[in-house]
Design a protein around this nucleic acid. Structure first.
Lengths: 331, 331
DNA sequence: ATTCAGATTGCAACCGGTTGCAAAAATTGT
DNA sequence: ACAATTTTTGCAACCGGTTGCAATCTGAAT
């Protein structure tokens, strides 16, 4: 069906090796034969079969991009960045949707079958088992948006969620809120756990601050809204640190439909700074995760891990930043 | 590095063919050898190399999933559906981000190099040239969310945008709006052109209705907002059919920040019914595109095209449906 | 026990490339 | 012009599988 090496070789009147070498850089081919080959190739519409070559070179340039975050708009931005970056680097993302998948084995097997060179696990809610499974199978893996650990057993790129929690707390305290709420994401997620830890650490250190906490069932609009509605039924705090932006938007919706408004009646601070956060009708004060840097660094790290497959596991952290908009009262 | 056929064969004390046949269904292997092979395979942790086998079978089960829509939240849903469906069918999506890409050639070449079995072009704004390029290269392709044509030259799955336009117009007329606006997406997009045609067709047929039109620069929040702000500077219509939901949300934001509100001062109807449309703080009346069906049908069609590669190009249309929420006045 | 069809097996060639090696060609120096 | 290098080239084996074919094995029927 497709044009092969051999046909090009015949047409150009050279050996198959000559053709092959024309398309592998660093190989020695005279300008003359290269010309002949390129001419023949063009006439035949030849392009080398990357998969066949991967057989001998052991490199497919395929990167498994795996995630279970297909409902958080932030991840559309993340996918956009990942695909572009990988493409720029000549790598190809093989996308794996892990929603509802609990068994690392089957996805591991699949990615092995396709001999991906490496894997990027992009999720803050995926169990560390997944990344671990790839690591154990000696496939270079980086866990993006994963949990920071001072002695990680796989490469991790992300933010220090504990510090994010602290940052949120300080921001709220600075604005004079005395009764503060932590409206966390799903209890199981490491991101939730860490943010809570940092948040409470700061709050407890402050004097005379009341805290309350609760968790939403997921990092989603509905969950955020539901959780906030429940808060509003009882006595609510003056301001909340919400699990993430999309939850925050849910919470804002709950606030508005209860006839209240932010920041007048309740303050909200989110986390992520996804595109929507700056939409004028949302205007959410939030903590920005530098997703572009995280993505770029993840790609860079996975490439480095490709080179040296027993590179020591490394954690790369990026700092977050409060983005002041309209859902907290001024300082 | 990885365990190969040969090693398993040696360990199991059988020929390489026997091992191979154990993993290709329909092949003849006695239960006894199969047992032996499976035992050896398990002990060695063997899993067949899909890429190597693709060499001889000519099938990679790789499907190019290409899009330029990485900023419209609808497409996160679309990617979710596509990846899941493809996975269910044992196919693997190789994701290609075509944002900023204007030349079909280079992506064509890349997908050829990876010998994808087929390609799904998921976009309503991508020029038909792309799908055409794959078709010409004899790669089965289906254009999802593409333009309907009664004699398409590639497979198309989507909605009849002309009919969507009519539906929007009828909906507005039924609610007694007399001065109606078409706030289209980017002028170049075929979806915009078609929706406009259907919309105006119905409006013109009605008596005593005033129309005005304008276009946003993109199917995006910002573009929708900007376009609506411009409308509000002059004399605006009583209700608008917006290019899509995300534009509608931008328009609503413009309306609110001008101190007006929907549906009291201005009616808005969107298109897509993306998840956000039903968020309580948005509550957008819109026309639902049945994306699940479109996706499933696209996958089914691409698989059929795999079987019979010169299957006659086919257009599959799904009907849309008005989803009544809170941005149009009641009937 | 013999025959025979059907099932199972291994051999060997092939898929589309890459690459070490030795021979051939081109270049350099004298 | 000749030897010593350096570059370029083709051969052939290999990457990890698949598959047509002929040989072998199996079990049922006679």
């Amino acid at each position: 069906m497709a044009v092969t090496l051999k046909e090009v070789a015949e047409r150009a009147g050279v050996s198959r090796s000559a053709v092959s070498r024309t398309y592998t850089d660093g190989a020695s081919v005279s300008p003359k034969t290269r010309k002949k080959v390129e001419k023949a190739a063009k006439e035949l519409g030849y392009s080398p079969n990357a998969l066949a070559s991967s057989l001998t070179t052991g490199r497919t340039k395929l990167i498994g991009l795996i995630s279970n975050n297909f409902h958080n708009p932030l991840f559309l931005e993340v996918f956009d960045l990942f695909t572009r970056r990988l493409q720029e680097k000549g790598l190809r993302p093989l996308l794996v949707n892990l929603t509802d998948e609990t068994d690392p084995e089957s996805s591991l097997r699949m990615l092995k079958q396709y001999s991906v060179d490496g894997v990027i696990v992009a999720s803050s809610t995926l169990s560390p088992e997944f990344a671990k499974a790839f690591h154990d199978a000696k496939i270079p893996v980086v866990h993006s948006f994963g949990r920071f650990a001072s002695a990680p057993d796989v490469h991790v790129v992300g933010v220090d969620n504990v510090e994010c929690g602290r940052m949120a707390a300080r921001t709220l305290l600075a604005r004079g809120y005395k009764y503060i709420g932590f409206l966390g994401g799903p209890k199981g997620a490491t991101s939730t756990v860490d943010r809570r830890a940092g948040f409470l650490e700061v709050i407890w250190q402050a004097k005379g601050i009341k805290v309350k906490e609760s968790n939403a069932a997921a990092y989603s609009f509905e969950a955020g809204r539901t959780a906030m509605l429940k808060e509003l039924k009882g006595t609510h705090a003056e301001a909340y640190f919400c699990g993430d932006d999309v939850m925050s938007i849910g919470a804002l919706s709950a606030i508005n439909s209860s006839g209240l408004s932010a920041p007048k009646d309740i303050g909200i601070i989110g986390l992520n700074d996804m595109e929507m956060a700056k939409w004028e009708n949302i205007d959410l004060t939030t903590i920005r995760q530098p997703i572009k840097q995280i993505v770029d660094s993840s790609v860079e790290l996975v490439m480095a891990a490709l080179e040296d497959s027993n590179r020591h596991p490394e954690a790369r952290l990026f700092s977050c930043q409060v983005i002041e908009r309209g859902t907290l009262r001024p300082i």
